[in-house]
Design a protein around this nucleic acid. Sequence first.
DNA 1: TTGAAAGCGGTACCAA
DNA 2: TTGGTACCGCTTTCAA
Lengths: 346, 346
Amino acid sequence: MRKLRHPKQAEIAHVAGVSPATVSLVLRGGTGASEKTVNRVREVAEQMGYRPNALVQSIRSGKTHSLGVFVPPYDSHWSQVLEGIHDYATSAHYVSMLLLHKSARERDDSYALEQVQHALDRRVDAVILCPYFASIYSEFLNEFSRRDVPVVTIGQAMPEGIVADTVLSDQSQTAMYQVEHLAKLGHRSFALVTDSQGVGWADCRLAEVEARLKCVPGAIWKILRCAHEEQKDDAIMDLLISPNAPTGFIAGTDRDAARIYAAAYKTGKRIPNDLSIVSAGNLDYLRIAQPTLTTVSHRSYEMGQRAAELAINRASGTLTGKQRIETIPVRFCEGASTGQSPARRT
Amino acid sequence: MRKLRHPKQAEIAHVAGVSPATVSLVLRGGTGASEKTVNRVREVAEQMGYRPNALVQSIRSGKTHSLGVFVPPYDSHWSQVLEGIHDYATSAHYVSMLLLHKSARERDDSYALEQVQHALDRRVDAVILCPYFASIYSEFLNEFSRRDVPVVTIGQAMPEGIVADTVLSDQSQTAMYQVEHLAKLGHRSFALVTDSQGVGWADCRLAEVEARLKCVPGAIWKILRCAHEEQKDDAIMDLLISPNAPTGFIAGTDRDAARIYAAAYKTGKRIPNDLSIVSAGNLDYLRIAQPTLTTVSHRSYEMGQRAAELAINRASGTLTGKQRIETIPVRFCEGASTGQSPARRT
DNA sequence: TTGAAAGCGGTACCAA
DNA sequence: TTGGTACCGCTTTCAA
């Protein structure tokens, strides 16, 4: 009676003594069948453990109700983005989600292309891309637009040719929080630790931070941006032990903040007595850092949700017209890593 | 010429002036077509941007080459497991992967059932489950076995009825490293901070740790396991400030270690001068904790890889027979959170 | 070497 | 109220 891995409608029809067409009708909740037939079919289907075959539905409808998600497994920020995407997708009932993420490795074109083709071959209704993927592999993105597969990017507005909706964290607001907080505490000598050039959001934020700093009377600052991560640690150390070391550290990411913590620990500098750190991000690092980190938090989960919403609305045709760029506000989280400027205290 | 979202073989056949059957033959790399035809078809397919429809292939072959992965988005451990699964799956070329993960929320049966049905409806070839899902929702797992969908669990051996391959971290080895390291440093008074009862691996590890402690002459220990996470913080505090506080803290997870760090910071106790902490896990917390955490690391990535391998081998029939339980060795990572017992130093 | 036709698991329209 | 049948996009005999 239940030898079949996945019972099919034909089997149910056979057992219930009706035609396949009727089974299809009933199982789809269609109207027109006699109550008796409905009950009979439902019952048989139930006990045979029938489950609709989404593949077949998709092949006919042309909709797979799935999203191709290109997101790195890096850190808690992306985990939360992923969670937001997944939760929205699930709730929209409109999709389940297909995950194709790229490891945080070195660039690998053939691997990336393979991932893109996986998404294409499985006919995802839309794709969501992280900044890294969107910028490094932008050449592959034509494959999507060429087939009218909607593209949504997170944290990276796309250049010229490529049409994609985008969800961004508010960099301007982030810079505002960072600079104002430190300025209010009396800091005037700053260090900006950020990512290497060419990363969209990093460039954008740096510009915003500098713009804000220019409005702080007497402010001076140094920029620390290294191509290689290892160099960063040394650069931070050097800065910390230099005479007239900056007291206000503005980190591009919590990851950078962690570097500064480590350097401070090594050089015996105290946070926030000798230096203050304000960061930006949303890593669960926060939970263990001592003193707790003052940071400007992305709303990662919300960004994921919003991205999924855009993707699904594009896919379903609910949303049409020119590309959208949505900015998600950030949240200031005061910790204990920031304090009065030593200069002011004296 | 390329108005079609996803060109189909029939279109190619039309453009190339051959029959659909021939196109299918050529595109599948089949033999028997004239070189001229092959070139012609390939060329047309290429420039029309043809991509095979995996849905159709799957519906016919009965294989979707996809894995249903039920993993929480929690922390870096699971991120790495996910990465391992994904990388192996990709390399096996045999699958792409479908992600259905459960949020770290409260139990929600209807949500879980929905996820299970998603996996079923999309006909995943096998599923991989995290301990939480496997134990809390074990009732749904029949749905998989009933349909001969192979199940692989990570970190949680399944009870009686349910047949599933399992990948485990070596709890015995973990306990050994933890206890021996502290014992060697002279500690005799321990605190075991662990998860609430009923979690498979936690129970197992606790038992192993106690067994080891019994072999340490003069060792005494207290067990801290609270139903609610919040209570844990208080319990740790109480313990820390009590007279004759333990000096050797054994944390069940890095998360617990973080609690101990925080409590130590608050009470002014110094690590490792006043107390030593050895943990188990693999969270990237490690990177920022000061002093660096001594921990026993899971090989999360490898566990994910192995799980995917088991799942795929079961799905493809490469692996048959009774369930496997694989134990992955752990790695001892010495940090600066452990030092000589104060008792010994005096 | 190429093509016609049946079929995979369903859906949907139309006739019975 | 039901059942027949063509069709979704592609594969796979089996003939031509």
